Each structure stands twice: as C-alpha cells, then as structure tokens.
Amino acid sequence: MNQSSGSPLGLTNNRGASYRLETVAQGASRGPRFETVPISALIPGDSPRSEGQDQGHIARLAEIEEPLPPILVERRSMRVIDGIHRLFAMLLKGRETIEVEFFDGSTEDAFLRGVTANVTHGLPLSHADRKAAAARIVASHPHMSDRAIARASGLGAKTVATIRHSTDDGLASVTVRVGSDGKVRPLNSAEGRLRAAEVLAERPEASLREVARIAGISPATVSDVRKRITMGELPVTVRTGTADPDLGVRNNRTPKRIEQVDPAPVLKKLLRDPSLRHNEEGRNLLRLLQQNAIAMSAELTVVVPPHCRELVVKLARQYAETWNEFARELEGI
C-alpha cells in the first residue's frame, strides 16, 4: 500500500484531518451510536496482537458481501481500538468510509476495551498475547479483581493471580478490588470489618448499604459485624492455628458449624436450572460440583500412598481454599 505523507493508512489526509478536528471539537457530544467516517481519519491503535495483522483474515473479510460490524474507535485520538482487520478489508475493497462506534475514555481504558472485544469475537488472540494483555491490565487497572481481568483477557483467574504476583511492584497500597460485577471488595476483609464497626459506632442509625459503601464490604458482611457487636464479640473472626478465619472462628475458639447438605438433591435441582445449563461457564460449574460430589463420596484417603500424602494434602487444601473463596464471593454479591 502506498503511504502518503500524513496518512497512516495510505490515503489523502485532507478530508481526514478536517474530520478529526471536527470530532475532537465535538468531544462526547450526543449523537447516533454509529457514525460513518472517512477511513483517512483513522489511525491504527495499540493492538494486543504481537504479530500484527493477519493478511489471510483480512482477505477473507474482504470477500464478505454483507456489511461488517462497526469498528471501535477512541474518539479523542481517532485510533482504532478494535476492528483493524475489518478496516484493512474495507481498504482492500476500495472503500473510503467505514461505520464506527466511538469510545470515550482514557488510553488505558481503551486498551482494556480493545482486549475484551478481541477475546469475545473475531480472530482470537494467542495465549501469549492474552497473558501479555493481562499483565498490562494488571498494571493499569490494579483495582480490578483477578476474575474481572480473567474475563476481559480470556484467561483463568489463577493465571491472572500468578501474573499479578510476578509483576506486582508498587501496588501494595491497593486495598480494594473491583469485581466483574462492578462491586468493590476489600483485599483484607478484616480491615473492612473493622471500618464497618467504626462507622456503626459513630452512626448506629446508618443503613447496611450505607455502611457497606463506606467500608468497602458487602451489606451481608456489615449485618454479620452488627450481630457480632450486639453479642459482645469482635467484628473480626479470630485466627487460631491453621483454621480459616472466614469459616467463623469465634472468641471462644469454637468453630462455626458449617451447614451440611445432601449433594444428590441439590445437584439434581441445579442440573435442571436452565440459567446454568444453557451457558458454557454454567455447565463447567455443574461438572465441577458433580466431580466433587462423586470424589468425596468415596474413601479416597486409603488410596493415597505415603510418599504422595504431602503433595495431596497441599493440593486438597489449595482446592478447599479456592472453593471457600468462591463461596465468600457468592455471599458478598
């Protein structure tokens, strides 16, 4: 493609320059969701793809007769956030304009939006590109939870946690995380509980939601803190030995009894629920729950040889903590 001066896409840039000036002047003015803009006004953005454009994919897109979905463009800079393959396909077809959806936000948010879009549709990102994108998002959005970044980058939450631990420098001051549901949760639940106790002492008439918002914890946790204070207990559970404080260890060091349920009828009910059966993540959850129910029904301890016990113990405790964290997260929603 012939690269003309001032045009990153190789087209005469007079019309594009004037369009960019008009667009920037308008800022975030309200208008139609999609706009038709001259291709010469656009600039290739910061792509998460390390290997650049896939020419074969561009050629396949150029052969499609139906209109392609609008591309995503950062309004302030006119950089393409998502849809660079569609853009070059339109150039290959000799088009001078393209349908655009504008994005208003920071460069960091634009990159996050671009990664999310690439993961959910179009040509998939490689595993290496998704990990590199996750590392960048961890650095630019440290308050996002591992699960939220995992969903945005198409990775597992544990992979994101590993990336965070390996790249964590100067982020120790972050005390809360924003989950994929948009809710803010403290990294240290004890701090949130202590803050809630302070607010309840200062403003006993405050609602659970108001205290939860100030303390950065869920209303259910605030309710538990209030009950503990009423009963003369500490707002924070006390850690004794290796016991998990979130299982409810009280001041008298008596563990809170976990309600036991028969897995068979519970699983039968969950397996009939269409909201779980009709999406891939829901089916994965059901499979995990079934596997756990089957595994725990057998006397598995007798099959573990002595030389493997330490490794199995470590894995069992790690998996138990993962499920426990999952349960706490559900309770906090």
Rank of each mutant, 00 (worst) to 15 (best):
L123H: 13
L123I: 05
P124D: 01
L125T: 08
H127R: 14
H127K: 13
H127N: 08
A128I: 11
D129Q: 03
R130V: 04
R130D: 02
K131Y: 00
K131L: 13
A132D: 10
A132V: 07
A133F: 03
A133S: 14
A133C: 08
A134M: 06
A135M: 09
R136I: 02
I137E: 00
V138N: 04
V138L: 06
V138Q: 01
A139G: 00
S140F: 05
S140Q: 09
M144F: 06
M144T: 00
D146T: 08
D146Q: 03
D146S: 05
D146A: 09
A150T: 12
A150Y: 04
L155I: 13
L155A: 10
L155N: 07
T162M: 11
T162V: 08
I163Y: 06
R164K: 13
H165Q: 15
H165V: 06
H165G: 10
S166V: 07
T167D: 02
D168N: 15
D169F: 14
D169E: 15
G170E: 10
G170S: 12
G170R: 13
L171Y: 10
L171W: 08
A172Y: 07
T175K: 08
R177F: 02
S180P: 03
D181E: 06
D181T: 10
D181S: 04
K183I: 11
P186Q: 13
L187C: 07
L187S: 08
S189C: 03
E191M: 11
R193W: 04
V199L: 11
A201R: 14
R203I: 09
P204G: 01
P204D: 01
A206T: 06
S207P: 02
L208V: 06
R209A: 13
R209Q: 12
E210F: 11
V211A: 06
V211P: 01
V211G: 02
V211S: 00
A212W: 04
R213K: 15
I214D: 09
A215Q: 06
P219Y: 05
T221R: 12
V225F: 03
R226Q: 12
R228H: 09
R228V: 11
R228T: 11
I229G: 03
T230R: 15
T230V: 13
M231D: 15
L234T: 15
L234P: 09
P235H: 11
P235L: 12
P235R: 12
V236L: 10
T237F: 15
V238C: 05
R239A: 10
T240E: 00
G241E: 07
T242Y: 06
A243H: 01
A243N: 04
D244V: 00
D246S: 04
L247H: 07
V249Q: 10
N251E: 12
N251P: 07
N252P: 01
R253E: 03
P255F: 10
P255C: 05
P255W: 08
R257G: 01
R257V: 11
R257L: 13
R257K: 14
E259G: 02
E259V: 14
